[in-house]
Computed example of a mutant assay.
Amino acid sequence: MDLKQRMVQEALGMGFVACRVCRPDAVPEVPARLDAFLEAGYHGQMGWMEERVQWRGNPSVLWPEARSVVMLVESYAPEHDPLAVLERPELGAVSVYAQGRDYHDVVKKRLKRLARWLIAQETCEVKVFVDTAPVPEKALAQAAGLGWQGKHTNVVSREWGNWAFLGSVFTTLALEPDAAEVDRCGSCTACQDICPTNAFPVPYRLDARRCISYLTIEHKGPVDEDLRAALGNRIYGCDDCLAVCPWNKFAVAASDIRYHGTAGGTLAELAVLDDTAFRLRFSGSPIKRIGRNRFVRNVLYAVGNSGDVRLRAVAQRLCEDDDAAVADAARWAVARLAHL
């Protein structure tokens, strides 16, 4: 086998679902798409998307010496129906990807292992990236033939569905690129139809300002009152558009059991977490990054949507919380439950 074939074999042996290659300049369409997204204001409060926009739009600028991008997929497919928890309003619904260990730590370590292996085979330089770097990884994944960006803007594959983390290894080696994948969504609109907040103005375009994942994770301060009811009991992220994708019939089981956990809990217990208890409970979890205040704010919106008058007392105790957004969410929940 040549180097690329051996690399793919090595990556699969490490637990990656797929490994393919493209050139850094294989996504010339990205700058215009990114500019349109930012111009429309769809990024909301995510000001970091406007920073280093040249890097984010052009991988060749990010590291000019790179000649190949090795794109990798790691599955986190759930073992259960991720939408079932939405029928349990007394519970907090946490996105599947955040129910276990923080994927940034797990995926990056695996990427570094593959990068070290590559260096041991050939004299080269490498850089590894997960989604914290300004890399257009979804577009690169399609260019490398891993899958295509579906109408929900996430990468979808005929081989592993859409429950996947993406990672990349940039290298100075000139590896043979794979053929790009083509769009296979067809006439399906399942992901668009199920969105509780109508966050897709048109297929393939997401308005983050209406996306529940954005609202519960990235958005600071109070959420627009017109959108709070649509949050339901989702307290961290949202899986609706991913869960209904018909290509998940090909989903591959997660290779790392650390992705599966029980990060949620009852709204009654989650609402009363102080900063110390929050940090202890979510140590090692991606949830920890949003902090206690934003998390409890989300929980209180779920309390207000629960229809359970017994939770009114829980919200009442937080109406004078030190954090303004928490206090506002608590008062909203109390008022909403008072009408039942």
Results as ranks from 00 to 15, higher is better:
residue 211 C to A: 14
residue 182 V to N: 12
residue 70 V to N: 02
residue 204 Y to G: 07
residue 149 Q to I: 09
residue 158 R to I: 12
residue 26 A to R: 04
residue 147 G to S: 13
residue 286 P to I: 05
residue 240 D to C: 04
residue 200 F to G: 03
residue 38 L to G: 02
residue 243 A to W: 13
residue 78 P to E: 00
residue 288 K to P: 09
residue 227 L to H: 12
residue 204 Y to L: 00
residue 14 M to D: 13
residue 112 K to F: 00
residue 328 D to M: 05
residue 97 Y to R: 07
residue 185 C to P: 07
residue 257 I to A: 15
residue 114 L to H: 06
residue 309 V to I: 09
residue 315 A to V: 11
residue 213 S to D: 14
residue 301 Y to M: 07
residue 340 L to N: 07
residue 154 N to A: 15
residue 24 P to W: 11
residue 144 A to F: 04
residue 305 N to T: 06
residue 251 A to C: 10
residue 90 E to I: 09
residue 190 A to R: 15
residue 61 V to M: 08
residue 114 L to D: 02
residue 49 M to T: 02
residue 35 D to L: 06
residue 197 T to P: 03
residue 109 K to M: 02
residue 205 R to A: 12
residue 264 G to Y: 13
residue 83 L to V: 08
residue 285 S to V: 10
residue 224 D to Q: 13
residue 280 L to P: 09
residue 91 L to K: 10
residue 292 R to P: 10
residue 68 S to T: 14
residue 198 N to Q: 14
residue 304 G to V: 07
residue 75 S to Q: 03
residue 121 Q to W: 00
residue 261 G to Y: 06
residue 31 P to M: 11
residue 166 L to N: 09
residue 338 A to M: 12
residue 296 V to A: 10
residue 282 F to E: 07
residue 159 E to W: 05
residue 102 D to F: 12
residue 78 P to W: 12
residue 102 D to M: 14
residue 289 R to P: 12
residue 41 G to N: 12
residue 228 R to N: 00
residue 87 E to N: 01
residue 77 A to N: 05
residue 68 S to P: 09
residue 154 N to E: 13
residue 229 A to N: 03
residue 221 G to N: 10
residue 194 I to F: 01
residue 78 P to G: 01
residue 250 F to Y: 08
residue 190 A to C: 14
residue 157 S to P: 03
residue 300 L to I: 10
residue 68 S to I: 00
residue 279 R to A: 08
residue 318 L to V: 13
residue 134 P to Y: 08
residue 155 V to D: 08
residue 85 V to W: 04
residue 179 A to W: 08
residue 288 K to G: 06
residue 55 W to Q: 15
residue 39 E to D: 14
